[in-house]
Amino acid sequence: MDELEKMLLMQIADLHKVPDGAYNIRKNGEADGRRSTPHIRIEGRKDGKSGIDIFVSGETKGESVHIPVVITKTDYREKVYNDFYVEAGADVLIIAGCGIHNCGVETAEHSGVHTFHLGKGARVKYVEKHYAEGDGNGENVMNPETVMYLEEGARMEMETTQIKGVDSTARTTRATLAANADLVIREKIYTHGKQYAKTDFSVQLEGDGAGADIVSRSVAAGTSRQELELRIDGNGKCHGHSECDAIIMDDAHVIAVPALAANCVDAELIHEAAIGKIAGEQLLKLMTLGLTEQEAEEQIIKGFLS
């Protein structure tokens, strides 16, 4: 692996070396390394689609799986399907992410479909980061799609972050929760230049006691555009909370479309949304501490997206 690929891996997965535990590193469409462990098995797909199947046994406790994707080509497109089968009682950390370095003028595009099947009481923390850069004018496109099925009492925590450099993205997330299952999503997006980001979350709370807490924080700078659609359907005695909070700067555009659908009288659903520029008094407070206006702005954004 060369220095550029190592840098991309560090950006998306904080990896300085081959990770401990199970991993699968995908580089320009090829497997660049894979390791299974006694509890976590990684296999190539057998249905002809590109991607892997990951089987996490019920004995797994506190182990991790890293599945980063690195692209360093221009004029390259791929669609990858990764399926996770997490058995009842397992407790696992899954770190995904995609880093693109596009040095050419053509498009580099990665579309990843991650489907999670969580057995009863399984616990998953899923972290994905998206980062792109390039020295040409080529577009960097990432379309992550996440599909989650949570059986009774399962819990999934998803942290999804788009750090920098992604020109166009459609982020689609679908989740279906059985009774007493719990889903937490934290999304952070920063767009700049002419970038476009669309987030589309839809959660079905099917069983009694199911709960979802979804918070999206974003900053849109330059002439970038963001669209956020966030929908929670409460189909039982459940509780759902969603929040979108955006800072808008320069000539950016942000549209937030929250939706709540209560199909049961005992469903408790809440949505909060706010879009606005950085408050003048926040800048002033930090300037009275000796920061310049630009330094103050950077600190406010850094905190907001931390």
């Binding site: 924080r217 008094e281 002033l284 407070k285 300037m287 000796g290 920061l291 600190q299 406010i300 907001f304």
Partner: peptide, 28 residues
């Protein structure tokens, strides 16, 4: 001089109504 320059020259100012920040911790 600007607010920043005065702060750097040794003036501190405590707001009557303190400002809130999402994401910035007390330690930050």
């Amino acid at each position: 001089l600007s607010v920043t320059e005065r702060a750097r020259r040794g003036i501190s100012y405590a707001f009557q109504q303190p400002v809130r920040f999402k994401g910035i911790t007390v330690k930050d």
